[in-house]
Measured scan of single mutants.
Amino acid sequence: MIINNLKLIREKKKISQSELAALLEVSRQTINGIEKNKYNASLQLALKIAYYLNTPLEDIFQWQ
């Protein structure tokens, strides 16, 4: 199981879903879906999320 901390980290950094989506060149709905565990981010997208949030990938998506 993967624990998804994207919403928590994004909100801590005061970045909206729309802002993050624009940086990543995806839709806001994609970010929303990832945060609600409706969609799994591809490895490429997960790495981009970590880069733009300046946060280690394993802090955003944790295996349990």
Rank of each mutant, 00 (worst) to 15 (best):
M1E: 06
M1I: 11
M1G: 08
I2C: 15
I2P: 06
I3V: 14
I3W: 07
N4L: 09
N4G: 05
N4S: 04
N4Q: 03
N5A: 06
N5W: 06
L6D: 02
K7Y: 05
L8W: 09
L8I: 15
I9N: 02
R10N: 01
R10K: 02
E11A: 08
K12M: 14
K13N: 11
K13S: 08
K14Q: 12
K14F: 08
K14T: 04
I15E: 02
I15R: 02
S16M: 06
S16H: 05
S16A: 06
Q17F: 03
Q17E: 04
Q17A: 06
S18T: 13
S18K: 13
S18G: 12
S18L: 10
S18H: 11
E19W: 04
E19M: 09
E19A: 13
E19H: 12
A21F: 03
A21C: 05
A21D: 00
A21M: 03
A22V: 10
L23R: 10
L23I: 10
L23T: 08
L23Y: 14
L23E: 08
E25M: 12
E25Q: 15
E25V: 07
V26L: 04
Q29K: 14
Q29R: 13
T30L: 15
T30K: 08
T30F: 13
I31Y: 05
I31R: 01
I31E: 01
I31D: 01
I31K: 02
I31P: 00
N32E: 15
G33C: 15
I34V: 05
K36Q: 15
K36Y: 06
N37T: 04
N37P: 00
N37Y: 07
Y39M: 14
Y39V: 15
N40Q: 14
N40F: 11
A41K: 01
A41F: 11
S42I: 04
S42D: 10
S42N: 09
S42L: 03
L43Q: 09
L43S: 07
L45M: 10
L45H: 02
A46T: 06
L47Q: 14
K48P: 00
A50F: 04
A50D: 00
Y51S: 09
Y52G: 03
Y52Q: 07
P56I: 04
P56K: 08
L57A: 05
L57V: 13
E58V: 09
F61A: 01
W63C: 12
W63E: 04
W63A: 05
Q64N: 12
Q64W: 06
